[in-house]
């Protein structure tokens, strides 16, 4: 860790001074099994992790993403004053996806942080600009009046399966039941133990997530 991590102290301090920010540690615990496959200790420089990730080392990439996530959360929270906090996680996921898609543009041997912050700044500004055009209201208020999402955007089955793998398992089951098997939201919800309204909300979110993923994939 003797590389010049110029930006680290400031950002670390931000993420520590914000109350209630202990969840990232819980996230690391949940993903600890990914790290267990590897004998290298946890305190690896981000440069080492990303270099190994770009050579195809999946667990190293998981540790890299977990390591940068608290910093990214802090960046998004600071920039996201005008945005409802419940959308910050969406923006974070867009940034993580961009990091994956563009990770080969980081030049091996150069510091990761300037690259990472440039990617994050670009995606965060982009995400906020797109959302800034709308008034955001919590979707729960509309649970009973939301129409059921009719069908997924036209995609090949293989693409659909790949993208369903990227969202959480329960949403994926809902989408599969409604969009691919033609069930109603109420039926699909019952199968996973949700009320019809909750299922419609979950579906709506899942579809929006999938739309974002599909846009990224097509690029």
């Amino acid at each position: 860790m003797n590389l010049p991590f110029v930006y680290a102290p400031a950002l670390g301090a931000v993420s520590l001074t914000v109350p209630g920010d202990c969840a990232p540690r819980a996230a690391s615990a949940r993903l600890a099994h990914l790290a267990k496959e590897d004998p290298v200790p946890q305190e690896e420089p981000w440069e080492v992790l990303l270099a190994r990730a770009n050579e195809g080392d999946g667990p190293a990439f998981a540790r890299f993403l977990l390591a940068v996530t608290p910093t990214l959360r802090a960046v998004i929270r600071r920039r996201g004053v005008g945005l409802p906090p419940d959308q910050h996680e969406d923006v974070l996921q867009e940034v993580l996806l961009a990091i994956h898609l563009k990770r080969q543009t980081w030049r091996r041997g150069s510091p990761v942080r300037p690259w990472l912050y440039a990617v994050a700044r670009y995606k965060v500004v982009d995400a906020f600009r797109r959302r800034g055009a709308f008034v955001t209201l919590p979707i729960e208020d509309f649970a009973e009046v939301l129409p059921e999402e009719a069908a997924a955007a036209p995609l090949s089955d293989r693409d659909a399966e790949t993208m369903l793998g990227l969202i959480d398992a329960r949403s994926a089951r809902l989408v599969r039941a409604v969009a691919l098997d033609g069930k109603t939201a109420a039926e699909a919800g019952k199968a996973v133990g949700m009320t019809a309204g909750a299922a419609r909300v979950a579906l709506h979110r899942a579809m929006r997530q999938l739309t974002v993923l599909a846009e990224r994939m097509m690029k």
């Binding site: 969840a23 667990p59 998981a62 993403l65 996530t69 996921q93 898609l101 080969q104 919590p138 959480d168």
Partner: peptide, 23 residues
């Protein structure tokens, strides 16, 4: 309005995906 659980799932999925071709 994703939750942190789905972020973990995303990280797991991205780590399992093959690395993009070198640029």
């Amino acid at each position: 309005m994703s939750d942190r659980q789905s972020t973990d799932d995303l990280i797991r999925a991205l780590a399992a995906a093959p690395a993009p071709a070198p640029f």
